[in-house]
């Protein structure tokens, strides 16, 4: 540490004190100005005291949660297609709000083979980038163990993506859903980098980040998210954690569930059953 002479330190302290005083005065002046009616941007209608965010739905009465039973998943990828159509996600094989991973252990091979619908082999099997299918590429291999794992945004209680957003374009709602305000997103992609789960993608067409919303427009109307709606085997479970008899509460209560990467401190709200340590 370098030593500074007393006169210099005193001068600096005095300067900072004056500066602080000036700033306070300016702020007070601004506050007075702001108090003048019409000075602030009245571009939005005032909320009408009723239920929020819609008149039929009060977000203070819900706390949503999602479950994935990987032991049931058959890798049909209907969830991925439904999500794309429901939410107008770009029709290509590389941008997703939800996806399915396949984990394959071959006999005599320590490495786990992981692929998803965007693997070139699987794109070729589907015949197009707009439809999805897992190629039967391990048909003739000696498979020791294999399973599918659906993935999506974890809607964390302490989301890193929200913390890094410089404009307040992403936030966590009172009912536990992490959303993106596309009007305020400046496309800096900090959130895409910050998410430890790779749940976000960048939509080049719109110049904004995008990700799963648990189909917020559906759940606020009493429907299930589209991926849950179409899953033919019940591998995806959704519900209100406040309601002790909801599918998700029963799923959490009746199973030994785990979350992905708990060590990151994000506290995910997607609960998994039937996954190995390689899944994160």
């Amino acid at each position: 540490m370098t030593k500074e002479s007393k006169p210099t330190l005193a001068a600096r302290r005095a300067f900072l004190t004056k500066l602080g005083g000036a700033a306070t005065c300016a702020a007070a002046g601004a506050a007075a100005l702001a108090a003048i009616p019409g000075a602030s941007a009245k571009t939005e209608p005032a909320a009408d005291g009723a239920a929020f965010p819609t008149k039929d739905y009060d977000w203070t009465k819900h706390q949503w949660g999602f479950g994935v039973d990987a032991t049931k998943c058959i890798g049909c990828l209907r969830c991925v297609e439904a999500c794309k159509r429901e939410n107008d996600v770009p029709a290509n094989a590389h941008q997703f709000r939800t996806w399915v991973e396949r984990y394959v252990h071959l006999e005599g091979d320590d490495e786990v083979h992981i692929d998803s619908q965007q693997d070139p082999v699987n794109i070729e099997a589907s015949g197009s980038e707009k439809t999805f299918r897992f190629a039967n590429r391990y048909k003739d291999a000696k498979v020791y163990k294999a399973f599918f794992v659906p993935k999506l945004c974890n809607h964390c209680t302490h989301p890193a993506c929200v913390q890094v957003c410089p404009t307040g374009a992403t936030y966590r709602t009172e009912d536990g859903v992490v959303l993106i305000d596309h009007g305020y997103c400046i496309g800096c992609r900090y959130c895409v980098q910050a998410c430890p789960y790779g749940a976000r993608y960048f939509n080049e067409e719109q110049g904004v980040s995008d990700k799963c919303t648990w189909c917020y427009h559906r759940i606020t109307k009493g429907l299930q998210p589209a991926c849950v709606e179409v899953c033919p085997v019940g591998a995806r479970i959704f519900g209100d954690q406040r309601d002790k008899e909801s599918p998700i509460s029963l799923f959490i209560r009746n199973n030994r569930v785990q979350v992905l990467r708990p060590e990151t401190g994000n506290a995910p709200n997607v609960f998994y059953v039937g996954i190995d340590k390689e899944v994160n």
Partner: peptide, 19 residues
């Protein structure tokens, strides 16, 4: 409600279901 635009929530909720 916090460091975000509250009115974006009803905007997102207003999207029409497809399925």
């Amino acid at each position: 409600f916090g460091h975000y635009r509250a009115n974006s929530v009803p905007e997102i909720a207003a999207q029409e279901p497809v399925y």
